[in-house]
């Protein structure tokens, strides 16, 4: 990127700070200015409590994201590929999908910990609700993009493979799977973003991590900490989506747009 462009982008970020600064100077006392937030941030960065919240939230997102990929990708590819399998599974998933993640929280708190305990996952009860809600966020974009990815592959590629002697499973391995990957990748980028959104919502209510840190700063009246939490979540969300985007692009060298 050339210097002029960098400068323009720098101005964009600087202007937000300026607006924030001005509004906090003349505005309500509950809104801390950038300097107060920066000071608090500096204190938090050396505080192990902050890092344990960061670590917990990141671990939760990464764990659930991997789980969502492991379940969502094969499921999406199979639903898109096999009409019968799709008929058996897709309607049920479509029924669950429109329920907003937050609406799952009471269910999660009431049912899941008990379920986890009775299944023998002791010490994991607190996690179950957050993990479940986060999973929903990552899972559905990955699933839907997997299905769409398969459906978007021109039939002639499968025909070509069959005419070259490929059996059904070989067609799946060499045509369906690689052909759907660009769409799956898009789903993973979106899913990673939604995983953070859902994680924070779930953590605010059922506990732990950056969500809880931000929420308890609000209930405890330490307003700059709210902003420390917000900024941290924003940066981590951006970083993880960017990593997914770049790792994905590096795995798709055949995409014309992936050259960048």
């Amino acid at each position: 990127m050339d210097a002029a462009r960098l400068a323009k982008r720098g101005i964009s970020i600087a202007s937000i700070l300026v607006v924030w600064f001005v509004v906090s100077a003349v505005g309500p006392e509950t809104l801390p200015g950038p300097i107060a937030v920066a000071t608090t941030f500096a204190e938090y960065v050396v505080d192990p409590v902050y890092w344990s919240a960061v670590g917990l939230s990141t671990a939760r997102v990464l764990g659930t994201f991997v789980l969502a990929v492991l379940i969502g990708v094969p499921l999406g590819l199979l639903i898109g590929w096999n009409v019968v399998f799709g008929d058996f599974t897709y309607p049920a998933l479509e029924l669950i999908r429109p329920i907003p993640p937050i609406a799952w929280i009471p269910f999660g708190i009431l049912v899941l910990p008990t379920l986890a305990f009775s299944l023998g996952f002791a010490n994991f009860e607190v996690q179950t609700t957050v993990v479940f809600i986060t999973f929903l966020g990552a899972f559905f974009p990955i699933l839907l993009n997997g299905i769409e990815g398969v459906r978007g592959i021109d039939d002639e590629y499968s025909r070509a493979a069959h005419s070259l002697g490929a059996a059904d499973w070989q067609t799946f391995r060499h045509v369906i799977y690689p052909g759907a990957l660009p769409s799956v990748h898009t789903g993973m980028v979106v899913g990673m973003g939604l995983a953070w959104v859902n994680l924070v919502a779930a953590e605010m209510i059922s506990g732990g991590g950056l969500g809880f840190m931000t929420w308890s700063a609000y209930t405890g009246g330490s307003y700059p900490v709210i902003f420390v939490g917000m900024i941290t979540i924003g940066v981590l969300g951006y970083l993880s989506s960017t990593i997914v985007r770049y790792v994905g692009a590096s795995q798709l060298p055949w995409m014309e747009s992936a050259a960048a």
């Binding site: 002639e156 590629y157 070509a160 069959h162 005419s163 070259l164 690689p178 052909g179 055949w254």
Partner: peptide, 19 residues
């Protein structure tokens, strides 16, 4: 059904773009 003894070339190029 299709068979490798009957090869096909398509109107739009159908090389596998990912290979």
């Amino acid at each position: 059904g299709p068979d490798p003894s009957r090869g096909v070339v398509f109107q739009s190029n159908r090389l596998f773009p990912w290979k």
